[in-house]
């Protein structure tokens, strides 16, 4: 399959969540997507919606395992509920070395930082509050990538470290 360049495969773990679905639909024209969620029927619906948005072949795939999806991906977006994020991080740790991992927090609640579980990944935390994505992380390139991805969703992007300095 001729993909859109390389480095462009994104795994969305928890694709059926509100944030996962929004992100997947927003970035599907620029990135090849690996959609992963436990409810495969609902994921299939999302897959068909994405196929309608972007009618190119191989623009998205459904995977049934977060580790397999993360192994194949260049970028990993974790959009599962906060309580499940640590579990997912442990599961994908071995295959996410040196990859950018976006940890999405959408709405209320506190997510546990997963960087310590993924010591060799570039973890970026993204908190979605109303129409704003607040981005925080240590790796400059990963922050830029996360900002680009969030900008594609139409959210207003604020980089936390820059906001702190201001």
């Amino acid at each position: 399959m001729k993909t859109k360049g390389y480095n462009n495969t994104v795994a969305v773990i928890g694709a059926n969540s509100k944030a996962g679905t929004m992100i997947a639909k927003s970035i599907c024209k620029q990135y090849r997507l690996l959609l992963m969620d436990n409810d495969q029927l609902q994921t299939a619906t999302l897959f068909h919606e994405i196929q309608e948005i972007n009618q190119q072949l191989h623009t998205a795939e459904i995977l049934t395992c977060s580790k397999e999806a993360s192994w194949e991906a260049d970028v990993i977006i974790i959009t599962v509920p906060l309580a499940e994020q640590e579990y997912v991080a442990q599961k994908i740790a071995e295959v996410s070395t040196c990859k950018t991992v976006l940890q999405i927090k959408n709405g209320e609640g506190q997510n546990a930082p997963i960087q310590s579980l993924l010591p060799h990944s570039k973890v970026v935390s993204v908190s979605i509050v109303a129409a704003t994505a607040i981005i925080d992380g240590q790796d400059e390139a990963a922050i830029q990538l996360a900002s680009h991805l969030m900008a594609l969703t139409g959210l207003h992007v604020v980089v936390q470290s820059a906001a702190d300095e201001a």
């Binding site: 001729k2 480095n7 397999e68 194949e72 295959v95 070395t97 040196c98 990859k99």
Partner: peptide
């Protein structure tokens, strides 16, 4: 050594480098 490598699965016919891109 393990901490420096990116594990990557590639499907048949999928590119990892295309002419015109830098080999990263």
């Amino acid at each position: 050594l393990k901490s420096f490598f990116i594990p990557k699965k590639l499907r048949k016919r999928q590119y990892v480098l295309q002419e015109g891109d830098v080999c990263k």
